[in-house]
Amino acid sequence: NAAIIILLYVGAIKVDCGLLTQGNVVALYNYMSQILVELIKLANLIITVTKSFACAGRVNEILDMTTSLSHGEQVGTVAGTPFIAFENVCVNYGNADVDALSGISFTVEKGQTVGIIGGTGAGKTTLVNILPHFYDVSAGKVTIGGVNVNAVGDEKLRDMCGIVPQKAVLFKGSIRDNLKWGKNDATDEEIMDSLTCAQADDVIKSKEKGLDEQVEQGGKNFSGGQRQRLTIARALVKKPEILILDDSASALDYATDAKLRKSLKSLDYNPTVFIVSQRTSSIRHADKIIVLDGGKMVGCGTHEQLLSSCAIYEEIHYSQFQKEGA
């Protein structure tokens, strides 16, 4: 702006003196405007390139980063051992003062259903995330078939697991494409079987295009319960040996939740199921229920056993259901 003012001021003087015409001044003004626009573009380009180099450096740092997970030599399963065993397991995030999990020990046989319950921040999600080796334990060990999860191999281990996280996430594309994330070569029959088990077949029947119905990013065109059932179906397509449901039925009504649990029990490939829930109704029929409080296991047993032996479980249960005789 200052340059234009100077140009017009000097130009006016030159015109008054007869050294320039008014057309010459207008032409100079246009040339100056074009030059300034290009200089501004050049300055923005320099800033963009500088930012790009900085971003590229940060991306390279991430790509060059090595995993902190420990891995042992891969070995076969050991006969005569529990299918899954937690042995005095402790987990600590980033050298925190307090362990996220401390002294967790229990065993699970193949095909059993395990319920995990506790208050917010009790360590429920941390517990189930150790199984697919998302985190290393800071003490103790977790074994599958008698082999430490560190030595099973991450690819093999995660192929064994079907995981449904707390937040049900669907991706942009068709319903069929979303469900094939669990198994790329899944047939429509396998997909429909998993949808039926997850109580989501009615979702498909209600859509005009069926499995070809388009899903918006994040599944915004589906309700919370529909998203949860579709993500459960996605985990079931691959027929996992270990199925982890991390509070993934919270948006389902009690009747649908009960039908889902009954369907899981009747699966012919008999997966070992871990159900994380805030509702005792979702886990009361589990073979074993783990009660967590402050990262520690304060109870382990069946629903009836825990009602008589674990005050925390009893409190959670009767806060949701009226005590008989009350």
Rank of each mutant, 00 (worst) to 15 (best):
Y31L: 12
Y31E: 04
Y31V: 05
Q34P: 00
Q34R: 07
I35G: 02
L36M: 01
L36E: 08
L36P: 01
V37A: 08
E38T: 02
L39E: 04
L42W: 02
A43V: 15
N44G: 02
L45P: 06
I46V: 15
T48W: 11
T50D: 14
K51C: 12
K51L: 10
F53M: 05
A56M: 09
G57P: 03
G57F: 01
V59K: 00
N60A: 08
E61S: 11
E61F: 00
I62F: 06
L63G: 02
T66I: 05
T67E: 12
S70Y: 03
S70M: 06
Q74K: 05
V75C: 08
G76F: 02
T77S: 11
T77P: 13
V78M: 09
A79C: 02
A79L: 01
G80I: 07
G80R: 09
T81E: 14
T81M: 12
P82Y: 13
P82N: 11
F83L: 09
F83T: 15
F83N: 10
F83P: 10
I84A: 04
F86A: 02
E87Q: 07
V91E: 00
N92H: 02
N92L: 00
Y93I: 02
N95Q: 10
N95T: 04
A96N: 07
D97W: 11
D97I: 08
D97Y: 03
D97S: 04
V98D: 07
D99A: 13
D99E: 07
S102P: 02
S105F: 03
S105P: 04
T107L: 03
V108L: 09
V108F: 11
E109D: 13
E109F: 04
K110T: 15
T113W: 05
I116C: 11
I116Q: 07
I116D: 07
I117M: 08
I117F: 01
A122T: 12
T125R: 03
T125K: 02
T126S: 15
T126Y: 12
L127Y: 01
V128R: 11
V128A: 07
N129R: 06
N129M: 03
N129W: 05
N129K: 14
I130W: 09
L131G: 09
H133A: 12
H133F: 04
Y135L: 13
Y135F: 06
D136Y: 00
D136R: 01
S138Q: 00
G140T: 00
G140W: 01
K141H: 08
K141L: 03
K141I: 03
K141W: 00
V142P: 00
G145P: 06
G145F: 04
G146W: 03
V147Y: 00
N150V: 03
A151I: 12
A151M: 01
V152S: 05
V152Y: 10
V152P: 07
G153S: 13
K156Y: 01
R158I: 04
R158K: 10
R158H: 14
D159C: 05
D159Y: 07
M160A: 00
C161P: 05
C161T: 15
I163P: 02
V164L: 10
Q166V: 12
K167Y: 15
A168D: 13
A168P: 06
